[in-house]
Simulated assay, not measured.
Amino acid sequence: MSEKGTKITFGGRQARALCNMSHSARLDFIAEGLPIVLQSARGFWRAAETLKERPREAAVLAGFAEEESAKALILIDLVRCPKPKVGKRIGRIVKKTLYDHLSRMIYAKAQSWLPANVAQLQEYIDHERQGHYLEGGMSEYIVPNWSLYQRESTMYADIEVHEEGIPQWNDPNRWSDSTMMMRPMALDLVEALEALGLLTRSGLQATSDVWSSVDFVNDEGPVEALELTKQLAARLDSEGLVSECATEQHARLLYNHWQLPMYNMDFDLIHVPLEQLEAERDAAFWNEVGGY
């Protein structure tokens, strides 16, 4: 006989607790956590750098560093969200985006994109969240989401099945010769935000005050973002929050690579029907051969 009772929520993955905090308490808590998240990302990256003779293992750690950095950027975007809008967005952000591998990888990758506005940024994200897509010179192959596949196949030995239906083993060490490890831009960016004083409690307050004036949901883009970034930089400087270690490179990262706020973006994996992919493949084939 089964009995129903209160679900125990002790343990990790409890970022939903942010939903029940006041705005001020939430900023306090995020300010406490951001240095911890950054230190975690740095630790993974430093460990990756020591494994030059083990490129597969180094790539796994570099991926962890990138995803940890993305966590920091997600939390900072929560701070950038206009206070009247936080209530309807925070649940998705802290329950889904913050804990989802693909969402974090897209968040990190997006820091190098240059969209014209928020609507185009969502289009870029949509391209990255396709569950499967066509690949090959004539779009002849149906392949899984590359970011997820590369993450999993680099990390784990596993059994996988491709379109022909034949099971085969994935050997994660096969990625060793093709893995090129680069320092995650997301980590560079979070370090720049730290140097400029944004990760402090006062820095987060300034970020919230300045960025709350514009809700980035559709047509808003780099023009609005640049103006708010200038206002924030001036305030961080006037309040003495910029650290002595801040450099021109940190400022360039702030101005050139801090992406538009993504608190209203959809990062969920898009499941593409097999029939749709097959139809697109047929169309690509006939377009290539000219209908003959």
Rank of each mutant, 00 (worst) to 15 (best):
D126P: 04
E53N: 07
Q122R: 04
G137M: 12
V242Q: 07
E191T: 12
A72V: 11
L241K: 02
N264A: 09
I36H: 09
L277S: 03
E280A: 03
D158Y: 07
A15G: 09
E194H: 06
M1W: 10
G291A: 03
A206K: 04
K71H: 08
N256P: 06
R129V: 01
H162M: 14
S69L: 01
S147C: 09
R104D: 00
A47K: 01
R13D: 12
E68P: 06
S2C: 12
K4W: 11
S178I: 07
L226R: 13
A70P: 06
A116H: 05
S103V: 04
R104A: 03
V242P: 00
G165N: 12
M21N: 00
V79H: 08
G291Y: 06
P184H: 05
E66I: 11
K95Y: 02
E160W: 13
W113E: 05
G87E: 15
P115A: 10
N287E: 12
E68T: 10
E244P: 02
G33N: 09
S40L: 15
G11D: 01
G290Y: 02
M265T: 04
C245L: 07
E194D: 08
E163N: 13
H250R: 01
L134I: 00
L269F: 11
C81V: 03
G5Y: 00
V214F: 13
W169I: 14
A59K: 09
S238N: 11
A31I: 09
E140W: 06
L196Q: 09
E140L: 03
P167N: 13
Q14W: 06
V223Q: 10
V118Q: 06
N145A: 10
M1A: 14
M181D: 03
M182C: 00
L61Y: 02
S112M: 02
G165K: 14
N170T: 12
L204E: 08
A116P: 05
A15I: 05
V60G: 04
E227Q: 13
V60E: 00
I90A: 10
G290S: 04
M1V: 14
G136P: 00
A195F: 03
H101F: 02
N218Q: 12
K96F: 12
S69K: 04
S2Q: 12
Q259L: 13
H101L: 03
W286A: 07
F29H: 13
Y255M: 13
S176L: 02
Q120S: 10
A17P: 07
L274N: 01
A70S: 08
K52M: 08
Q120R: 00
P261S: 11
E227T: 13
Y156T: 05
E288A: 09
V86A: 10
P172Q: 03
V223C: 00
L38K: 10
R80K: 09
M182D: 14
A72Y: 07
A31S: 13
S112C: 03
A186M: 11
K109N: 12
R42T: 07
R89S: 05
Y255T: 13
P115R: 06
A17R: 15
L78Y: 01
V289R: 14
S202Y: 07
G203K: 03
S103D: 01
D268H: 04
I76N: 05
S212W: 05
E280M: 01
